[in-house]
């Protein structure tokens, strides 16, 4: 078959292996402890070196498998440091700083995501990070954080762990190349998809067991139609993500277009599904004792890591040969 949208044997294996690791080492219940994720187990698994060639210590997979794994990282609400890491490794390699790239990929240098906020920089879960990747707009910047004093900042809903740095930054280098931005956005949107699917699954599971009026609330159309909507949107996003990942891997002409579409759609779908998930849970959904709120807050974090919107600047892969006026 020349076209095949099924996962192949290698892809299924890496997904199964990553899932097993995440279920064991990073269950959602860990979030109750309010401790930063220790990413050592993921680094040892090779999660940050998936797409690196084997001679550079990678596992020789492609961006397609890496995106699949990031879908699972999203599902498990792994710290955004797991996103900053592979982007830092790629950025360092592009800058010719291979010693940094290799240490980052191996997980021996800790990297966090950072976003500009007025005249300062907000580090996300970066209290101990030695490097930062500044996301936002049409560039990514690699900075050294070691020397910079950090000021703790209360994070969104007392859940997002933030610190602020000011003053002249120690910049290692930057990149405005669309291909790196597309790769970065592909991984971020894969995580958003993971959250969109996980929040659907959480809502559906709850709707099956929660009973009111003598029956499970999932039997009521008011609830089941919410769940169906979550599924439709997640399915559309998932299909688009596969299409985009293939296009980026194969360097197809429509890669930038597909990623631009993802960039718009992914946060919208993730937000909608997480909102519905909270709503279907009712009172417990509003509490910090259920996990639904963690999904919401992570979507707010991930949205900040996406690059700028280019959707109307790119040619469409399926465009008409003649303008509309010629028909009417």
């Amino acid at each position: 078959m020349t076209c095949d949208m099924n996962y192949n044997e290698d892809q299924r294996q890496i997904l199964d292996a990553a899932n097993a690791l995440l279920n064991t080492s990073y269950p959602l219940s860990r979030l109750q402890e309010e401790k930063p994720d220790d990413l050592t187990a993921l680094a040892e698994f090779g999660a940050f070196a998936l797409a690196l060639p084997e001679e550079r210590g990678g596992t020789g997979f492609t961006i397609v498998e890496e995106a699949l794994v990031h879908g699972l990282l999203g599902r498990h609400l792994i710290s955004s440091r797991a996103l900053a890491n592979p982007i830092a490794a790629r950025l360092a390699a592009r800058l010719g700083r291979h010693e940094i790239a290799e240490q980052v990929a191996a997980g021996t240098l800790s990297v966090c995501a950072a976003v500009p906020a007025d005249d300062s920089l907000l580090l996300i879960d970066g209290a101990k990070a030695t490097l930062g990747v500044v996301f936002g707009g049409r560039q990514v910047i690699l900075i050294a954080l070691e020397e910079l004093p950090r000021e703790g900042v209360p994070g969104l809903g007392h859940s997002v762990v933030l610190s602020r740095v000011r003053g002249p930054l120690s910049m290692i280098g930057e990149c405005t190349d669309s291909s790196l931005l597309d790769t970065s956005d592909l991984l971020v949107t894969a995580q958003l998809l993971g959250i969109a699917e996980a929040s659907r699954d959480m809502a559906v599971s709850y709707a099956k067991v929660r009973e009111q009026f003598g029956r499970s609330i999932g039997s009521f159309q008011a609830i089941k139609h919410h769940c169906a909507n979550m599924s439709v949107d997640a399915e559309a996003l998932s299909a688009l993500l596969d299409m985009a990942a293939i296009a980026v891997r194969d360097e197809r002409g429509d890669a930038a277009f597909q990623v631009a579409a993802l960039r718009l759609l992914a946060p919208r779908v993730a937000f909608a599904n997480v909102r519905t998930c909270i709503q279907i849970h009712g009172g417990i959904g509003f509490s910090a004792e259920a996990d639904a709120h963690h999904y919401l807050k992570q979507v707010h974090v991930l949205r900040q890591l996406l690059s700028g919107n280019t959707m109307l600047d790119l040619p469409a892969p399926l465009a008409p040969y003649t303008s509309i006026n010629e028909r009417n």
Binding site: A236, L240, M243, A244, F257, A260
Partner: peptide, 8 residues
């Protein structure tokens, strides 16, 4: 973007 998703 949605039309791209429908095509996918």
């Amino acid at each position: 973007a949605e039309a791209a998703a429908l095509r996918a």
